[in-house]
Amino acid sequence: MLQKLLISSLVLLFALPAFALDGPALLKQVDRNLNPESYEMYRKLINVEPDGKKKEFTLFSVKKGADKVAALFLAPASEKGRSTLRLGDNMWLYIPGVGKPIRITSLQSVVGGVFNNADILNLDYSTEYDVKSITDKDGGYLLHLKAKTREVAYDQLRMQVDRNRKVPIRIECLTEAGMLIKTLYFKDTKEFGGGLVRPSVVETDSPLYKGYRSIMIYAKIRKRTFKDEVFTLTHMPNIDSLR
């Protein structure tokens, strides 16, 4: 009996680290720790130039399930009322008073700066990436992620994850050849309500944009469900009605 207990304990002891280093499970947990699967939230985007000059944008965003995201610009006045929609790999931009929604791509940036559309209309990491490897490093985890399709904006990610909170601390975005495109820094962890504790600021810089930085500040992240019809071209002019 004692022998069986000893063997079971040893098996459990070795199994625990293996569970802890289950990359796909950890990535899903990171996703859920960043935001609920369906939510609404507000963000401020700040583009900072090398001379310190700033341009700011305020957005209201909604997301449902794995692949539906929409965002509405609230400020500045020149952008107010613009909305963007993402359904899987499809993205559109609507400009009130000018025209109908037009197709855009993940590589563009409707706000300029270092953040592109994929950063602004981001899906869960586990939706777009497979975990290629996971290592225990510097008191946290280092995940190597590979894009599931060629439509994803960054071919590879190197994600450094906080061991306790299971949220990203830093993400390096790489091309297929391994060239660094940008680095995202997750900062200022705070409580958003509903048990959500996550970084409230994401800052990014890029070797391609030397001296420039873009910052995204999060507020009022709240779990919320929406009808699928909210995420359609026809509904794009009406996203403000969800606030």
């Binding site: 020149s78 613009r82 931009l93 400009i95 940036s109 300029g112 700066g113 420039y212």
Partner: peptide, 8 residues
């Protein structure tokens, strides 16, 4: 430099 706000 980073891309600036654009529309279509």
């Amino acid at each position: 430099k980073p891309a600036q706000p654009g529309t279509p």
